[in-house]
Simulated scan of single mutants.
Amino acid sequence: MRALLIVNPNATSTTPAARDLLAHALESRVPLRVVTTTHRGHAAELARRAPLEGIGLIVVHGGDGTVNEVVNGLLGAPEPGSMSAMQIGPVPPLAVLPGGSANVFARSLGISPDPVVATNQLIELLELRERRRIGLAHCDGRWFTFNAGMGLDAQVCEAIDLARAKGHSATPSRYVRTSIRAFFRNRRLEPKLTVEIPGHDPVEGVHYAFVSNSSPWTYLDDRPIAVNPETGFDTGLGVFAMRTMGVAASLPVVRQLLTPGSNPKARKLFRVDDTPRVHVRSSAPIGLQLDGDYIGKRTDVEFVAVPNALTVVAPRLG
């Protein structure tokens, strides 16, 4: 089996020394080609060509954005509204060696955030032929692996992207500071969103909506932040929609999110952990993010769950 190692040198925690160490360890187990990305979209281009070049395994060393690129390159553009993956020909399995700041996708799969430990873990998984089929989700013509959102979190992602462009690292403390600023900047604005899911009346007056494909929604260092704890790669989508930006009403929800094992509940919170699709409409253009990448402003977005969309090299559940 030939393997392709895609390395994003600009990811937060990737270094040439770590890349060489990972490559050397993998080369002792599988024939390996190593490619370092040089521009935005390069990882998707490499993934798109991989099946045609006889690649039997793709390993990504980078952050969640690089993983997202590879998944979109592998699977191609999703069919609008479709709950199945339109795959043409064989799609090689995907393995992830964390190299970003949060590495939510890898950690949600049970992969260690330490790239050296994760490499040893991957080698063992390959020897045991451990693979899983996982569900993904899509919207706006793109796949996402763990989360998406409209409103507040998209603004945060946009600000972080701008900070990265200026050379600032995407640290947990920067995310916290940026989130607090975005919250207070928007707290007096009128809600723009309406959330619709099958089997429920439309939920109006929503300020921001998170859509999850797995849990946790993100990490602050080692602390998991679970907005929809019962959502996973083997369920439908989770929805977390807040109908208030009041400080008094929001602080208890934040405390619940920061408490391990909590099950967030509040009078102004609409939450569902397993739905096949979510339709979010906005009365004015509002930001959209996918897997932590800011996509742009939208007014009408449908999020769709697709079961068994991708094969990954990861520990089996249970």
Rank of each mutant, 00 (worst) to 15 (best):
A154H: 03
P229R: 11
R181G: 13
D291H: 02
R188C: 14
I225C: 01
T171P: 09
L162D: 09
M245A: 12
V278I: 00
K265E: 15
G205P: 01
V280K: 04
S169R: 15
I225Y: 07
D222E: 15
V227C: 13
F270M: 13
A266Y: 02
G205D: 00
Y219R: 01
D234P: 00
R164Y: 01
M242N: 13
V176C: 09
Y175C: 00
P224R: 03
N213P: 07
R243L: 01
V203I: 14
L288G: 02
P229V: 09
R223V: 13
P276S: 06
N186I: 05
K192W: 02
D234Q: 04
D291Y: 04
I225S: 07
P276R: 10
G238Y: 06
G205N: 04
D161Y: 07
K265L: 05
V280M: 02
R164T: 03
A159L: 12
A226E: 15
P260G: 09
H279M: 14
R223S: 07
R223D: 15
S173M: 08
L269A: 13
V272L: 11
Y219E: 12
P276Q: 06
T171E: 05
H207V: 08
N213R: 14
R223N: 11
R164Q: 11
V156M: 13
P202R: 03
E158I: 03
S250R: 08
A159F: 05
L220Q: 02
D234C: 06
A209E: 03
L220N: 01
V280N: 10
R255G: 11
R174A: 06
R177G: 05
A182V: 04
Y208D: 12
A159V: 05
R164K: 14
L251K: 10
R177E: 10
P224D: 00
M245C: 02
T244D: 04
V211K: 04
K192D: 00
A248V: 13
T244K: 03
V176H: 04
R277L: 08
A249V: 03
A226F: 10
P216S: 09
T218I: 00
M242D: 09
V272G: 00
T259N: 02
G205H: 10
V278A: 04
V239L: 00
S250Q: 10
N213M: 01
C157K: 05
V156I: 14
S250T: 12
T218D: 11
I225H: 03
V239I: 05
P198D: 07
C157W: 09
S282N: 03
V247I: 13
E190K: 12
G261I: 02
R164P: 07
T171C: 01
L189Q: 05
P202Q: 09
S250N: 13
E230W: 04
D221N: 15
F183L: 07
R267A: 15
I160R: 09
D201A: 11
C157L: 03
N186S: 12
T259Q: 00
Y175M: 10
K265H: 15
L162E: 08
G167V: 09
